[in-house]
Amino acid sequence: MPKSTTVDRLDNGLRYVVLPTTRSSDEVSIRVRVNAGVAQENNHFPTARIVALDTIQGTNWHVSTDYQQTVFDIDFASATSSDIEKALEVLYAGLTQEVKQPNAEQLLESAQDSLTDIDELISQRHLDTLTQALAPLDEQSLSQTPLESVKEFKQTYFTPKQVSIVVVGGIKKKSAIKSIERQFSLWNTTTQEQSLHSTPQLELISKAEEASPITISSLSTFHDEEDSKLHRKELLMTTLANKMLEQRIQEALSEQHLQAQVDVDNQVLFDHRLLSQVRVANLEETDKVEVKKVVQSEIKRALASGFTQTEYEMVVSQVRKQLERQTRLNDPDNYTRNQADRVVAAIDSGSVYTAPSYDLDLLNFHVAHLNEFDISKEFEHNWSTASSVIM
């Protein structure tokens, strides 16, 4: 965590993170995270999405409804202390107002411009849904959702102890903290809060669509569940192994003249397990059987013989370039908003926020002491049926 960061709580339990990232610009990004998302919905009704859209109705805020969190966001190319306080004031009003009977037409119109829903978030991560079946966000589901269900969701989860505020950018730290205190310190609720989420049983949901992607997933555990250098080393080795598998699958498909987009990514889940997933998209329906055979064959080959030094060095170079592109030097226009998103992601995963420059230094440190045999061993841990669950 950078030394300039302030992390604290108000007396009502609301947590805030204030992170100055620049002195040469007035750009500011604000994120307000609620510790509940579509996983806490009643399976039949999109209550999280309804409450989220109702909260920002008629404002300039945007919202994302993820699996275990709802995140409100707003970005300023240039903002004064007054602008920051006004934005927080507007959102506070939405967070604390009594929810109204859903107007399906208005909410769907608002969703087009102001909502990034769970399906889009999963698509951006190149990962298929690993969750319980979700209620659709459409006119029928909105019109059938009881107002009492919406009210119950908001009263249960939209409370100070479930909220984190993140303010990042060219800010005056003391002024930003004062704005948070003025707008949110009087927020108190009498409703009994749920201290623990009811986490649904995980299962892979595949949409029955024409030309749907092929996915093969693996769930494994960390040797060290605490966020530490060892934990991040494991995550790095998994990333390198999966990217080497991705390249092998892509090359094998090309050799057989099969056209498709291959992504092999990983994500730390809410229960601290590690999801690795092969996802092959943009393929012809008639090629699916053959493509799946190629994927399974390459996984078996990697388990049997591991990876080569050439593959290792190539992927390390690619990951290094990816991290370099995320630094302020190479991405000044998006750096502030990206850091705000990284702080939220750290809160969601229960890890410590680190800047891209730190991750780059950590990469260089670890790869200096790793080789292709270490990565092959980590791949076996993640993809072998003896140590993981393959779906």
Rank of each mutant, 00 (worst) to 15 (best):
R15C: 07
Q40L: 11
T131M: 07
I177W: 07
R15N: 14
L235I: 10
Q267A: 07
E89N: 08
A281P: 00
F373E: 15
Q277V: 02
K172V: 12
E27K: 09
F76S: 11
D54G: 04
H369V: 04
V166S: 01
T327K: 03
E251Y: 06
T385R: 12
T327C: 01
T47E: 11
L91A: 11
D331Q: 09
Q309H: 15
N12R: 13
H223A: 13
F307V: 06
G306L: 15
I171H: 01
G94E: 09
D128I: 13
Q183E: 14
P146N: 10
D265Y: 00
E255D: 10
F270E: 04
T190Q: 05
M244C: 04
A39K: 08
L329C: 01
S351K: 15
T80V: 13
S297R: 03
H381G: 03
N330F: 13
E378T: 07
S349G: 09
T191I: 10
V63I: 06
S110Y: 14
S29Y: 02
N35K: 12
P160Q: 08
Q267K: 12
I118L: 12
V90E: 14
L147N: 08
S349I: 06
N35W: 05
I171V: 10
S305W: 02
I299C: 01
G58N: 14
Y312E: 14
Q132A: 06
N371K: 06
I214L: 08
V295L: 03
T55Y: 11
L142E: 06
E380C: 07
V51G: 03
L19T: 07
Q250R: 02
D73S: 14
S24I: 02
